[in-house]
């Protein structure tokens, strides 16, 4: 039986940001939901307002794929065992809540270093803030042309 949207989001939160603390997880959940509710651009067109479409959009979330670079990716949503905190954060984000700092963010990534690049690839996003090991990016004008 397919996972529900809530289950998918909880698993993704755990997989992508389980070690980032509550704020880190809330920020990642916010990014997913911001894509769901994107006003325009690629995520509005591809997602069509669906959490499932956004999570499984190809080449977006590593955790949504069982393979990465041709090799098996063990850190995927199917191997997760979400706990109550993950469901609570999923519910929180689905209800519309956002962390103010990343309330408009559409991308995040782990730089594996001390600094965040100022622009997201293809200049579609500008650096907004960093929460834990993740750098978050807000959309630029270029994004809306995607």
């Amino acid at each position: 039986m397919a996972f529900s949207d809530r289950e998918l989001l909880a698993r993704l939160i755990q997989c992508e940001a389980g070690g980032e603390g509550e704020n880190g997880m809330k920020a990642v959940a916010g990014v997913v939901m911001n894509r769901v509710h994107a006003k325009g651009g690629e995520y509005a067109r591809v997602g069509q307002g669906s959490i499932r479409n956004i999570i499984f959009q190809p080449y977006q979330f590593v955790c949504a794929s069982e393979t990465e670079g041709g090799a098996y990716n063990p850190q995927n949503i199917y191997n997760m065992r979400p706990e109550q905190i993950h469901y609570d954060i999923a519910d929180w984000a689905i209800a519309g809540n956002r962390l103010p700092d990343v309330a408009e963010s559409l991308w995040f990534y782990n730089p594996f270093g001390p600094t965040c690049r100022s622009l997201f690839p293809s200049n579609v996003g500008y650096w907004q803030t960093r929460i834990g090991d993740h750098c978050f990016y807000n959309p630029t004008d270029a994004y809306y042309k995607t």
């Binding site: 325009g40 630029t140 994004y143 809306y144």
Partner: peptide, 13 residues
């Protein structure tokens, strides 16, 4: 329906 800039997205928000 399809804002082309961040400003247009803001104006419709």
């Amino acid at each position: 329906e399809a804002p082309l800039t961040a400003d247009e997205a803001y104006r419709g928000s």
